[in-house]
Design a binder for these strands. Structure first.
Lengths: 186, 186
DNA sequence: ACCGATTTTGAGTATACACTCTATTTTGAG
DNA sequence: CTCAAAATAGAGTGTATACTCAAAATCGGT
């Protein structure tokens, strides 16, 4: 762990390089060599500050996951449209970080600690969407609420994925339309 | 190219091993060594029959892509519910092949010829879903039709992805519910 | 300015990968 | 049965990967 100023700056450079690479070339392209070259650091320095390559990647991913969700308000419970808007502005406002999250979720969701982190976060999101829906639609059963939460989240992820493939894709428009049509059909 | 019976059988074993591995451990885990071990073949034999590892993988993926879509009927145009049901039965009926498709689409969609194949197929699917929707909802503009097609496809992919992560996930139920609620909100 | 702790270097290790090459065995048409 | 073509084995190549280590440079509290 970094204790001197030099080490702290180097650590930040490495994290930033890792974040950029994950967004630009994905998990596979984010090699140790690539990270070190971009951060202007030799391998030995990297391992003086990080336990492993996954250590650096995991830090970036955990930051990204934190950024997906808005801070819960203290005065009132979440509203569904707020959660959807937060997801939209996360994806469009920080496209690089969003790509990190999506790429990890999609390419690495079945292997290792990275995958577990993503899966745990996904379950937390389903719960949060569910409670927002339950608040707004008291007539729905718990099962129906979960159904709708899962469908909305699936749609959002699927749309974000399309947007990843085709940069010109109108992700915000599609996401809002999908969320609203899913709401009216209560 | 295989010309003798022995070669033809070996080729089939290699394809089958590749298909199984893609479904079980994804693209990254599908190494040449793993393919050769499972197919009970040495590396030299593999390269006598295939140009490259990607050659074998691409054949499997192309098979999977062909299996995603139902054969168009000659007497009538597609109906949306038919297309949705076909996707559901593809995913649930051939889960291993479906996993191949999803994993390739999600992990390899941004690199190389594999990705191009997947993207081309995706656009074809949007077009087919669009024409089905247009047939059933003459009141919608072309833009609205495309919107709906993209949303339904995104939802289906997202739900299939959830089902990949959690085998107990009720994919057919969620997919039907999502498709129907998307239809009523015309 | 000193000096132990921290940081940096850069060559080096071990491993896994896709792929090649040559010798040998097997196949099947004539 | 013959024999050229096809199939196979298995050691070997080159490259990329993550990671290590000992020595040198730098930092910063005293």
């Amino acid at each position: 762990m970094a204790r001197y100023q030099a080490g702290i700056r180097t650590e930040a450079r490495i994290i930033e390089a890792t974040r950029e690479l994950l967004g630009e070339v994905g998990l596979d392209g984010t090699t140790l060599k690539a990270i070190c070259e971009r951060a202007q650091v030799r391998a030995g320095s990297f391992y003086n500050l990080f336990e492993s390559k996954d250590d650096a990647v995991l830090r970036v991913v955990k930051d990204a996951i934190r950024a997906v969700d808005p801070h819960p308000r203290q005065d009132a419970p979440d509203s569904l449209s707020e959660l959807v808007e937060a997801y939209i502005s996360f994806v469009t406002g920080q496209p690089e970080v969003a790509k990190v999250y999506l790429k990890i979720a999609m390419s690495g969701a079945t292997n290792g600690s990275l995958g577990n982190t993503v899966i745990r976060h996904h379950k937390r999101r389903v719960a949060r969407f569910s409670s927002a829906i339950a608040n707004e639609h008291a007539e729905l059963t718990a099962e129906e609420v979960t159904e709708r939460a899962e469908i909305i989240l699936a749609t959002l992820s699927g749309l974000a994925f399309m947007w990843m493939l085709e940069p010109g894709f109108d992700f915000p428009g599609r996401a809002r339309l999908a969320a609203s049509s899913s709401l009216v059909s209560g």
